[in-house]
Design a protein around this nucleic acid. Structure first.
Lengths: 132, 132
DNA sequence: CGTATTGTATCATACTATGATACAATAGCA
DNA sequence: TGCTATTGTATCATAGTATGATACAATACG
């Protein structure tokens, strides 16, 4: 369901956050679904339960999930949860996209390579209805 | 030429690395161009010179620039510098792209929004010849 | 040869990520 | 109700990392 990489310089809890965001955005987990208990996911990933708990809390702050002690953590209704104005969001998106495309360019990918990968992923996060 | 953000959780030297990679990939700085001395860029950004030096060294390890004590740091010829096989590079690119698109989706961007931004940036990093 | 300029190395310090452990709230069952 | 299991939360310790202050070394240039 989720994977982390030990040699990724990104902190583990950030990897968890990003991974769960991807799952939610791709509708692999749906509103109302429960995330695994922190201890279980921590065991699965081989990390400390605090590391998972921290990720859950960050997602809760973003408004993507809701955690209640004793009950668990559930995914909330899909919504525009991440802060800032629409313009600010587009700006952050553009900056992040620039970084990724620059990396691809420097790695030697062709424009067609990049275009193909993007097109494929657009379908993942903004699926066409008939293709499901 | 370059900007860093203090409230970005990403370490400063990583922000510098990413920013310079973007400039190089977008051909805003060309092979043979000199980067500013570490002290100057550090002063411009309001950070320690070691922080800039660390970024320069990382770019040198990637093969993007060459630093020589007493002379400075120059951008090298454009080349497929970042490590790994072609397949590994595409995989990393795909993963990074997924993260960005997922973030855009959760931020409420439409598919057309994302598509528009991507198309625009593709032209930045893989420009059409006649448009220059 | 001497001075300025540039990157590098060393050391100290503050911060952060991660982990070990204990606490608190909810659910569920006898 | 009371007991126990389950779940998230809080506290504390420790290792690692980012950043900075300062000194060193190599190149350029008069």
């Amino acid at each position: 369901m989720l994977a982390i990489s030990i040699d990724d310089p990104l902190p583990i809890h950030d990897q968890i956050i990003i991974g769960l965001r991807r799952l939610i955005a791709a509708a692999k987990v749906l509103p109302g679904d429960e995330l695994p208990p922190v201890r279980q996911l921590a065991a699965d990933l081989g990390v400390n339960l605090n590391t998972v708990a921290r990720a859950y809390r960050a997602l809760e702050t973003e408004g993507l999930v809701s955690s209640v002690r004793g009950r668990g953590t559930v995914v909330l209704a899909d919504r525009e949860a991440i802060g800032g104005t629409r313009k600010a969001k587009a700006k952050r998106f553009t900056a992040a996209m620039s970084n990724v495309l620059a990396g691809g360019k420097l790695a030697g990918l062709s424009r067609d390579d990049a275009q193909r990968i993007v097109d494929q992923l657009l379908d993942v996060y903004w699926p066409h209805h008939q293709s499901r």
